[in-house]
Design a protein around this nucleic acid. Sequence first.
DNA 1: CCCCCAGATGCAACCCGGTTGCATATGGGC
DNA 2: GCCCATATGCAACCGGGTTGCATCTGGGGG
Lengths: 149, 149
Amino acid sequence: MPASPAAAAPSRRDLLRSAGLRCTPAREAVLAHLARQARPLAHRELARARALAALDRVTLYRTRAALQEAGLVHRVRDQAGAWRFCAHVRRGERCPANHPHFLCTRCGRMRCLTGQTLPWITVRGGERITGKQLVVYGLCRGCRERGAR
Amino acid sequence: MPASPAAAAPSRRDLLRSAGLRCTPAREAVLAHLARQARPLAHRELARARALAALDRVTLYRTRAALQEAGLVHRVRDQAGAWRFCAHVRRGERCPANHPHFLCTRCGRMRCLTGQTLPWITVRGGERITGKQLVVYGLCRGCRERGAR
DNA sequence: CCCCCAGATGCAACCCGGTTGCATATGGGC
DNA sequence: GCCCATATGCAACCGGGTTGCATCTGGGGG
């Protein structure tokens, strides 16, 4: 594995292409940003990012969706009702979003609670379960120390 | 306990008033409808209800909120990002919404999975937890039998 | 039983997340 | 380098939810 700066990472480009997606500047930038932040980002947070500010908002929405459908990214609904997208930390995990998420109700930051899996829920009544999500919310440490309550 | 039809139920009116709310037609109607349905209802479902169709949508939003703040009702975010409100089945429960919810992604109906409590999630990092919610989604029995997939 | 006002309702306008239709630009296989 | 499937940008739209303001009313006090 070469150590040259350009080739150090497993190449966004290869990642996108092997997921069956065309490699475009928008997708590279969004994927890079999600990977760098490594926490579930809302549309606003993406739109505010310097590298993504120039993108049309529709493009941003479509890019998020494309990355998610291609399996490079997972998403959670936050308590404000918006989707948040997060790059998979390790590729090839069996269920990449099978963990709870924490959301700070003050600063709006969300983080993955990796290392804990979602509980097994039994639903009696013949339903076919296709997914689940658990969001824990409250005040993050920073917000708790900074302000009262 | 009297058996006359008028006094059989514990009176919506008393419920509202003891929760510190004025008793208005809108609130009585919304509370009655939520109690009758006994599952988390989205704004659309409330707005479509015959008894509530005449209400202004803002009133509906404010009524939902009032009932919830007064503790007569709890709410969950569904997978579409909208709030759903559900009347408490029993009053005085310690944590009235401390159960998972099932959402059918086809017909959009949601139901409370009472009888199961939410798991204890440990969040390391000094966060103060104020709430959590677990939504399980999939196809309900009816939709599964009715359509394919 | 009526008066009166805090609080509830209705209306209009607005915000924001998200989607759709369509014309134009471009990635990448040939 | 060509060419087309597909990605982007733009404009318009949808739906959930909120806000400001004028009007109405529940219900406590007289």
